[in-house]
Design a protein around this nucleic acid. Structure first.
Lengths: 239, 239
DNA sequence: CGGTAAGTTGACGTGCGTCAAGTCTCGTGG
DNA sequence: CCACGAGACTTGACGCACGTCAACTTACCG
């Protein structure tokens, strides 16, 4: 299932057979985690990075009062903490939002790639830089967009990202996340998320129910969210 | 003045004479920008990255209604858009908050580094990953912290980051930023920033005036902000 | 069929936004 | 030297988007 990751990389640039093999060669094992489990806790020393093969995974940070902020949602094919390769410990935790199948990539082998495969190294670097671009867009949402715009923007972003790995239809996609977890992404309370979802439904823009996002007016939704996928850097580019 | 950048890298890991020379060798020219100027506009094709030698520089994104969100503040010694090396165009703009001296690092020469100097490549990768960690912490502020906590947290963060490059005293540092720009960092209005600054002053925690941040009770401020500098990854680590 | 977690709704509270009217600072030119 | 204007800062009155609290419904699972 590592194909989903390669699919995404190949959208950006050519990945040679040798590079393909090198990426696969970093994987030391594959694990399935149940929904709700914290896979990696903030601060732990790491000697592997987590490649998400299947499921939904969140990066989050805790606050003293028990609140959490989810700072990123990963979909199948994402390297959830490739940045951990250079950082050696994470400033955030990793949560399995749905049941997650993950592959663990050895840092020692990733290091080998940086010693011998400069092009692939640039591709991996690129991929952590796109993650950072997504963080920036979330900052804009959290800082400046209204609750309804934030929700609309997130639904648009995940639609594009899931389409890339073949997990979304043109007008809908599966998203097995609770309203409480959505609230933790959007910097809102679960109660208000519920109200916002109702408004999106009543305005016939999107519907979110039974773990599925269904678009009724995608152009209208994108207009509401001011969604521009440029920050996802999906266009081809020789690195 | 590129020393400030090297100073910061050397806090994390050893930089050899050859690597030192390679970094200096990427610089093609040095430019001074007046305060208020947008140095790089979102979307432009780039063939160089911006190393900030002196001044304060912000990354920001515009919204349709004219509002802006500043997603990151750079201090002297920061590579403001090293991520542009792999992304080739920026999803955000760069603003000179104060007059800024910048050096431009050629992407072609950075590429040479990735071909020949794997350790230095990892160090540069690391430095973009720390930027991403700062983005995450800002997401937590914007999503979950109150206005006064956000301001307190930012003052704490900049204190640490400026100390690293020798630009902060133990109990104060220069910060030539307007309240309106602070508001754009914190996801607030200028009016509310003003009220929050007053409260911080009245509670004898920090004072911000005449372009200087002066701490009156730094431990109390850190407690209020729940500030933990771990996300800045300042401890040494062989990469 | 009972227990538990997720979702829904209404009434009410509040932190921050909005609007508007100041004051203060400083650079410029008469 | 002072007049003036512009931009930054300050403050108060008021409004609203979202939070809080609490009761209820629904879905799911053993």
């Amino acid at each position: 299932m590592i194909e989903r990751h390669l699919l995404k990389l190949r959208l950006r640039d050519t990945i040679s057979a040798e590079e393909d093999a090198a990426i696969r060669g970093t994987i030391v094992d594959t694990i399935v985690h149940p929904a709700g489990r914290t896979i990696v806790r903030a601060g732990e020393e790491l000697n592997y990075s987590t490649l998400l093969l299947d499921g939904l995974l969140g990066r989050y940070k805790d606050l003293k009062n028990g609140q959490r902020q989810i700072t990123h949602v990963h979909v199948a094919g994402d390297f959830a903490d490739l940045h951990g390769f250079t950082l050696k410990r994470l400033d955030h935790s990793l949560l399995a939002i749905t049941p997650c199948t993950i592959a663990r990539a050895s840092h020692a082998r990733l290091r080998q790639i940086t010693e011998t495969l400069p092009h692939l190294t640039r591709v991996m670097w690129y991929s952590t830089n796109v993650d950072a671009a997504i963080h920036r867009e979330w900052e804009v949402s959290l800082g400046r967009r209204s609750a309804i715009q934030r929700a609309a923007h997130l639904f648009c972003e995940l639609h594009v990202r899931l389409q890339v790995v073949g997990l979304a239809e043109v007008d809908s996609y599966p998203l097995a996340i609770s309203q409480a977890e959505l609230a933790e992404c959007l910097g809102l309370t679960p109660v208000h998320v519920n109200r916002v979802l109702r408004e999106l439904r009543e305005r016939v823009l999107v519907e979110f129910r039974n773990g599925r996002v269904s678009f009724h007016d995608l152009p209208g939704l994108k207009r509401l969210a001011e969604f521009d996928p440029g920050y996802l850097y999906l266009e081809p580019q020789a690195l």
